[in-house]
Simulated scan of single mutants.
Amino acid sequence: MTIEETRFTVGKTTFFQGENQTYPLFRVEAGIPCQAAREQASELMGYVRDLSIDGLMEDKPQLLWASYYLSALAKALLDDAELGMAKHL
Rank of each mutant, 00 (worst) to 15 (best):
M1Q: 09
M1Y: 07
I3N: 14
I3D: 15
E4Y: 12
E4L: 15
E5N: 13
T6M: 13
R7H: 13
R7V: 06
R7D: 04
F8H: 04
T9L: 04
V10E: 07
V10Q: 06
G11A: 05
K12E: 11
T14W: 13
F16G: 12
G18Y: 00
N20D: 15
Q21C: 09
Q21T: 14
T22R: 12
Y23G: 13
L25I: 03
F26T: 08
F26S: 05
F26Y: 10
F26E: 08
V28R: 06
E29L: 04
E29I: 07
A30H: 00
G31S: 07
P33G: 10
C34I: 06
C34S: 01
C34P: 00
Q35I: 14
R38W: 03
E39M: 08
Q40M: 14
A41W: 03
S42L: 10
E43R: 11
L44S: 01
Y47P: 02
Y47K: 00
Y47I: 05
V48Y: 00
V48N: 09
V48K: 04
V48C: 10
R49N: 07
D50N: 09
D50Q: 11
L51F: 07
S52N: 11
S52F: 11
L56A: 11
M57W: 01
E58L: 07
E58Y: 00
E58S: 10
D59G: 06
K60Y: 10
K60N: 09
L63D: 10
L63I: 01
L63N: 13
L64V: 05
A66L: 01
Y68L: 05
Y68D: 09
Y68G: 02
S71G: 00
L73A: 13
L73T: 10
L83H: 10
L83C: 13
L83Q: 10
M85T: 11
M85C: 14
M85W: 11
M85H: 05
A86C: 14
A86Y: 14
A86T: 13
K87T: 09
H88S: 14
H88P: 00
L89G: 14
